[in-house]
Each structure stands twice: as C-alpha cells, then as structure tokens.
Nucleic acid binder design. Sequence first.
DNA 1: CTTAAGTTGCAAACGATTTGCAATTGAAAA
DNA 2: TTTTCAATTGCAAATCGTTTGCAACTTAAG
Lengths: 152, 152
Amino acid sequence: MKNCVHKHHKKKQELASLTGRLRREARKITSPRAAILEILRHHPHPLTIKEIFAELPKGGCDLATIYRAMQMLEKLGMVKRFDFGDGAARFELVGEGEDGHHHHLICTRCAGVVEIDECFPEEIERRIASVNGFAGVTHRLEFFGVCPGCQK
Amino acid sequence: MKNCVHKHHKKKQELASLTGRLRREARKITSPRAAILEILRHHPHPLTIKEIFAELPKGGCDLATIYRAMQMLEKLGMVKRFDFGDGAARFELVGEGEDGHHHHLICTRCAGVVEIDECFPEEIERRIASVNGFAGVTHRLEFFGVCPGCQK
DNA sequence: CTTAAGTTGCAAACGATTTGCAATTGAAAA
DNA sequence: TTTTCAATTGCAAATCGTTTGCAACTTAAG
C-alpha cells in the first residue's frame, strides 16, 4: 500500500503557474526551487524533506536548501505542512487560493497514506471555540489504522 | 491562561495504586519513578519531559531517566503521549482500565491547554475505516486557537 | 552587462530523544 | 537480615530532524 488513493480532484498545477506565484512575491526562481516544485507537482501526497531530496535529479541541491524552500513556500501558502507524528514534517502543494486543509488516513504498518475528504464537524468545532472563549479555532487531525494490504 | 480547565472528572490516583500497577508488571519502584509519578499525579494536564524535570525535587534524576520512565509507563498504558506539534512530547497519567483517549484546545499564543470532551464522531470514523478497508482506526486530534486572555 | 539583493552549499549548532556502559539499587530468595 | 542478580540509573556520546552563519554565487532588474 505504498501508493496513494486520491479522492480529491487536485488538478496538477502548471509549473509556470507556480513560478508565477513565486515571482509575484519577489522570489527568485532558482533551479533548486524549480526542481522541488516539479517534484511536489508530481506527488499529490505529503512528502518528507528526505523524500523530496531522494527524488531530486542527480546532483540535486543541499538538504538545507530544501528546508529553506519549504519554509518559504509554507509562508507563501504554496505548500501545507503535515505532521504524522513520526518526527518528520511532510509537505503538499496547495492550489492557488485554497488553504489545503484536509486530513489523512495512515497505515501504521506500511506508512501508506490515503487522503480523506471528511473533516471535523464545523458546528462542533464552533461550539468548542465559543464554550471556551477561543477565537480562530482550527484543528490538526489524522487517522491511523492498518490498511487492507497489511491486514493479512 | 497558564492554568488548565478540567471538564473531565479525573480522580487523582493514589500513589500506592500507581506503584501497585508497576509492581504487578514486575517493575521496580525506584525513587526517580516514584517522584515522576508523584508529579504526574498532581498535574492533570499533559507535561513535557522538561516540565517534569523542572518539577522534580532538588537533585532530581537525569533527563534520560525520565525519558526511559515515560517510555515504559506508556508501554504499560499508564501514561498517554500527546503531540501538540511543537516538537516536544507531552504525557498525562491514565486511569486504570482507561485508555486516556481525548483531545485538547491549545492557545497558540500562551500555550495554555484546555481539555476537550468532544471527540471525532464515531460513525464517521467507522465509515472512513470501512470505505478504505482499514482496520483498527483511531485518530490524533488537537484544536488550536487564541484563548480569551490572549485575544486583547 | 553591471549590480544588488536574494540564494545556495557547507559545516557547525540545535533541541528532543536515544543509547552504551559501568556503577548502583530494588526486591526476591536464602 | 543478608545475599544476590536483574533491573535501573547517571553520564556522556550518538542520533535525527531542522536551523543557521557565512562566504561564494545567481537571478532579475536596470
């Protein structure tokens, strides 16, 4: 179950559109960045820094460069950071104008990932916020279990 | 908002009951362990290793000892590990027979924590599991927002 | 083509957590 | 109690993911 099922209809973004977003933010389009975006573009599921590094063409860039790129892309809202609780951050490209909020179902055996459409019920979240007087409440939510292939 | 609101009626467990659980598992009741349990007993909210370390009486034990103790207590199901996404694990004592599953509302400004009674709807989780053929599905869920005190 | 600001590689620094190992200590047995 | 041995601890070194300082190097604007 190393592959990923996608129920979200994420249109693969054009590289030009991505670099355009960068340019608009007065960021330089360097070859490491183009290569990283290219990889993210082709992987609709969350990738760790090391996975991106591994996908990088021969003589790719330094790990630090990827870390810096992801920080910056996250700040610009172009990628969303996910935490599966295993100590390594994962990143996924976010469509223009979208916020990328969604969840995953992760196999605790093979680490396979399935994107989930369901989200925590808004009314309940709203109630939790108001009952406690909190503002701007969001949540971090991930599901864990054993995938079909790992159950035997 | 450095204090914690508790809507859960967690009865503070007796130290004797805790050490009894250890003894039953053929684990030694050492002074570091007793001190750690004593601290957890008095703090119904999730504590980081460093917080436990700081609470430790003068000449407490080594950090490594706390790490080892928490690993072991977690394995025995006596503490539950939480991840607020800030890189430091937090631990909370779990009542005998309970599984400690619950969630928190965390202030992104002051890091204050409120325990939440709500959980992700079971029927939806069940549907997510069956639709994807996953078994033994659980979830990790935490809420984030700005607490009343930090909103001004 | 020049140039200044933005970027990169590299190595060192970090913070959380783990681990090897010799010295110490519970607690079961004598 | 005292003996005895496995469980446990302290300490330092090792890991791991991530960040950062800095000099060398590009990109993109003029």
